[in-house]
Every structure is written in C-alpha cells, then in structure tokens.
Write a protein that binds this DNA or RNA. Structure first.
Length: 258
DNA sequence: ATGGTGGCCCGGCCA
C-alpha cells in the first residue's frame, strides 16, 4: 500500500501536475494540503477518471485538505473535533484500505512573537488530543501532511539561517515529539536513519531548489504496525522540477497491514 | 535589489 502526501499550493494551479504524478507514482492513497478550494470547486471528476475516490475539506481561498484513494474511503471526518480549533479546514480523516488516514496542514505560525505561533503549538496539542479521543495506537493509522516543523537540525539546509525563526524552535519540535509519543513513527526517517539534508520543501525565491536550500517538513507519521512493514520511502524531487511546480514535493511510503 | 517568488484575485495577504 503506497501512502503519499503533497502540499500542492493550490490544486487549481496544480491539477495537471497532480494528475501526471498520480499516473506515474500510482499511490493507493494521496493526501493533499493547501488545495485552496471550496468543496464545490474540488475536481472530484478528474480523480474519478484516474480510478480514485475523494474527500475534501476546504472553504475557498486558504488551506484546504483532501484524501484521494483507490482502496476505498469511508468514515470521513473533518476538523479537530472542537468548534474553534480547526483554524480553517486543516484536517480531514478517512478509512482507506484498512488504514485510518489523516491529511493535516499544520498552521505556519508566522513568527515566534506572532499570536499565530502559540496558536500553532495549541493546534498540534489539539491534534494529539483528537488521536487520544478517536483512535488506538495499536491500529494501522497514518498522519500525513505539511507539519511546518523540521524535526531535527539535519532537516534544514543551514540552521544558522533559521535562528529566531519558526519551524525549528524547541517548542515546535517538542509539540511534534509529543504528538509522536502517542504512538507514531516518522516513517521516512525510520527508513533513512543516517541521511542528512533530504528536503521536501524549497522556497520559490532565489533558486533555493537548485541550491539545495530546503527543509523536510512534510511527514508521514505512522503507527508501529505500519512502520514495521514499511518497505520503501521516497521524497520525489522530480515533482519539484519543470513547469509550475508546487514549492513542496510529494513524499510517500510503501507499507502493508499484513 | 532594504527585495526575493508564487498563489489567491486585483491591493494586499499569506506562505
């Protein structure tokens, strides 16, 4: 079972690239973030033509998350489960092929002294509570998405460039670690324990991609039953090249539930 | 060059 995640930075602008990627990567489940679409605008038909069912949670201009599956999509749930904590269409969950899948777009946080920064920490804590309330870490589950946190120093191109900035701060990393302590494993890192500076996002500005100036902030966090069965993992840099790329590239794992 | 690039959608916000 191939499980993928991709922040597409507008599905309207990226649909052709997403269709192209699905055709050659053939994921069983693809989680999208930043569709920037209302539910009514989501191109369900384009994915149906490729053999996929879809579920989307978006309100138009900002954020927006989706799950695209060719192994079924049931028990869809949206939001963080309490009225004001979703902060704008950032979570969707569904059962796909025996795995509980969550597609998440963690708030950016903007700056350490911005009110959005503590809100980001609270959002991550609320996500952990949601798992406590709705799921069991002994079961197959994957939290896929743009976490807007680089887990370790080696997940950014140059730590000195991030002094005093979000994505690398201790509280953000602690919030991510607390989420993982529920019973989740960073599947890509488990597969590549010794490799540094493998990135999933590069700024559009300044030729960052070609200068290898990026961050690994797109993660697939899985329960141990999936982690132990993961046979392959890849950050597909090809999708960051060419015409009109997203600033993120897809990450996927191959796993199974026995 | 006190910015940069790209997406939203048309002046400014957001990443």
């Amino acid at each position: 079972m191939r499980i993928a995640t991709w922040n597409v930075n507008s599905l309207t602008a990226r649909l052709g690239r997403v269709e192209e990627w699905i055709r050659y990567a053939r994921p069983d489940v693809l989680c999208l973030q930043e569709t920037k679409q209302a539910d009514a605008a989501f191109p369900h038909g384009a994915f149906a033509a490729l053999g996929y069912e879809t579920a989307h949670h978006g309100d138009g201009r900002w954020n927006g998350v989706a799950i695209i599956s060719r192994v079924g999509i049931d028990n869809v749930a949206t939001g963080l489960g309490s009225a004001d904590d979703d902060q704008g269409t950032r979570v969707i969950a569904a059962d796909c092929g025996g795995v509980r899948i969550l597609s998440v777009y963690v708030p950016n946080g903007r700056a350490l002294d911005d009110p959005h920064y503590p809100a980001k920490l609270a959002w991550l804590a609320r996500l952990r509570e949601l798992l406590d309330e709705t799921s069991d870490p002994s079961q197959p589950l994957a939290v896929c998405g743009d976490f807007n946190v680089a887990p370790e120093d080696r997940d950014v191109w140059d730590l000195s460039q991030f002094e005093g900035m979000t994505h690398v701060s201790q509280p953000e990393r602690a919030a991510l670690a607390d989420l993982e302590s529920w019973g989740l494993v960073d599947a890509f890192r488990r597969r590549y324990p010794d490799d540094d500076k493998l990135f999933s996002w590069w700024d559009y500005r300044g030729g960052s991609f070609h200068r290898h100036r990026g961050m690994r902030i797109d993660l697939i966090l899985v329960t141990e039953v999936l982690a132990g069965n993961t046979s392959y993992a890849l950050i597909d840099r090809q999708a960051r090249k060419g015409e009109k790329p997203s600033d993120h590239t897809p990450v996927f794992i191959d796993t199974s539930i026995d």
